[in-house]
């Protein structure tokens, strides 16, 4: 499945300040795009634009050579987005949370799948506790279990390493590498030094423009 997300002449202004201008991006299958920049430089905004959430920008975005707005539903079916908030309901158990995500993905799925996804992220034994009683890192892990549970070619991850311990970081890095080698692609922001043995594209935001480097 060929995967191609292109952005041409992307520009975004917030409160009279240009976050970035004339930004050209291209993400193909087997690539990682890392968005860098200081706090407030527009990393999350860029990720939201690339995931089709914000419409308040200039320039154009193409998904598989078609304008993103026209193939939005199709695009969403290939996208997995993890935002700042983990998207985990505190009153529900990790299993119940994942069951909802499975249903929203349009595939029913079994409890065995959910259990093995939770086991992958090291939450065995916590599957029946209300997520509100889990630590911040464990809640983030519940969200990360979706990477395993609902396979999507394009991952857009906003600070996925937040609150994750050292071992979890190494595992997530391995998961990202495996996803990219399997033909998927990843767009992410992080302040962490990444140790992933696959080619990585970088975008540096700040000072009103964006620089692309390989």
């Amino acid at each position: 499945m060929s995967l191609r997300l292109q952005a041409r002449k992307l520009a975004c202004e917030r409160d009279g300040r240009w976050l970035f201008r004339d930004l050209d991006l291209e993400i193909r299958s087997g690539e990682i795009l890392r968005v860098e920049g200081p706090n407030g430089s527009g990393k999350t905004t860029l990720l939201k634009i690339l995931s089709g959430q914000l419409a308040d920008y200039e320039g154009s975005i193409f998904w598989r050579d078609a304008p993103l707005r026209r193939v939005h539903r199709n695009f969403l079916a290939s996208l997995l987005y993890l935002g700042h908030a983990p998207g985990v309901k505190a009153a529900l158990t990790p299993l119940e949370n994942l069951a909802w995500y499975q249903a929203m993905a349009g595939t029913g799925g079994t409890e065995a799948q959910r259990m093995s996804a939770l086991e992958m992220v090291g939450l065995r034994g916590f599957e029946d506790l209300p997520a509100g009683q889990l630590s911040a890192g464990q809640q983030r892990r519940v969200a990360l279990a979706r990477l395993e549970l609902t396979p999507r070619p394009l991952w857009v991850l906003d600070e996925p390493f937040t609150a994750i311990d050292r071992e979890g970081v190494a595992d997530l890095e391995a998961r990202l590498a495996a996803h990219v080698r399997g033909g998927g692609s990843v767009v992410l922001t992080t302040h962490q030094a990444l140790d992933i043995p696959v080619p990585m594209c970088r975008v540096r935001l700040g000072e009103g423009k964006g620089n692309v480097a390989s």
């Binding site: 935002g83 908030a85 998207g87 985990v88 309901k89």
Partner: peptide
């Protein structure tokens, strides 16, 4: 908790 964002996505 961010599930509304995920509902929209």
């Amino acid at each position: 908790d961010g599930t509304l964002e995920q509902l929209l996505l």
